[in-house]
Amino acid sequence: MDTQTLLKQTSRSLYLSARALPHPVRDAFSTAYLLCRYADSIADTALLPPERRLYWITRYPDMIAHPDGAQPEQLVREISGSSANPYEEKLLQNFPLCLEAFQRLNAAQQAATLEVARRVCEGMQIDLTTFPAENAGTVKALATEKDLENYCHLMGGAPGIFWSRLIASTVKIGLPEQDFCQLGRNIGDALQIVNILRDLPRDLRIGRCYFPITELSAAGLAPADLLNEENAPRFEPIKRKWILWAIEKLASAHAYMQTLPLTQVRHRAAVAWPVLWTADTLYKVFLENNLLDPAHKVKISRQIIYATMLFTPLIIGTNAGFSACLQCKLNKFPSDKKGL
């Protein structure tokens, strides 16, 4: 078992993007993703009460930086057997393998990996301290729009910054690194809000509503009202507001790709694929007229994924090609912002 096999088994789309990367960056990207995914499994495990999960999440980044053998083994014992997915269960049992992979990274990659793990764990602490236990039978929402934006910065934007730092460490980019990372954060924010939108029915059923109470109240809704599919029309303006937010964030990918040299084919492909797949997913969310229905799973088809990969040379061969492809997808949305 190695990190690439674990990545392939836990996230097919991320594995495809990682496989396109040069080896030094690929290993760091895969290791960071698996460590963050492991933290997500800790935060969500039904085997432990929320306070015990919070205990582990609070200590998790330091455990990565300074593993002492006893704590990782204790963590594996406590959460193994918590997933019905055999592949995720393999990840849970292979925490020591992920820690060993982290130790093989160079100093800069370790620092970037620890930073993204800390930020993601901050987001998970919000989950564990803001929302009720999964079996409490109640639904709670974030308080304000700023709370949701901050959550997206932690769970999506921070990985976007991490990704950008990895690229900047191996590629001569056409922007100051700080500006490049800001673009990366915007893209990560977009990926995260799309995940929140499409996972809304599932999150509601474990007591979590990421859409702020201020917006729900303005629409005459309480968080628990979103469990009723008949309230989808009243939720629609909130949905469309955050779709617009995602579109504006995702548009940063135009400038992001222009900073990557055309000769860096692997990096360009690994950036282009998730951006384009996110745009496709966002449009499916837009078309879904009852996002509250748990039976309606918003997911792009394998055909879309493989078609994107098939046309990769045309998409990434020029900056104009990528921008035209992304803009074509974004142009499917109403041009009038009131339509959103």
Rank of each mutant, 00 (worst) to 15 (best):
Q4N: 13
T5A: 04
L6C: 04
L7E: 00
S11M: 03
S13C: 02
A20G: 14
L21V: 05
V25Y: 01
D27A: 15
A32R: 02
L35V: 01
T45W: 08
G81D: 05
S83G: 04
A84L: 13
A84E: 13
N85C: 06
N85F: 09
K90S: 12
F102C: 03
A108D: 14
Q110G: 05
A111N: 14
A111W: 11
L114V: 07
T130R: 13
P132T: 02
P132Q: 01
A133H: 07
N135G: 07
C152H: 08
G156L: 03
G157K: 08
T170K: 09
F180E: 04
N186W: 10
L191G: 04
R198K: 15
P201Q: 08
I213L: 15
A219G: 02
A222E: 14
D225H: 10
E229Q: 13
N231Y: 15
I243F: 02
L244I: 09
Q258S: 11
L262M: 09
T263S: 13
R266Q: 14
W277K: 11
D280Y: 12
N289T: 13
N290S: 06
H296S: 11
V298M: 08
V298Q: 08
Y306D: 15
Y306Q: 14
T308E: 10
M309H: 11
I315C: 09
Q327A: 13
C328G: 15
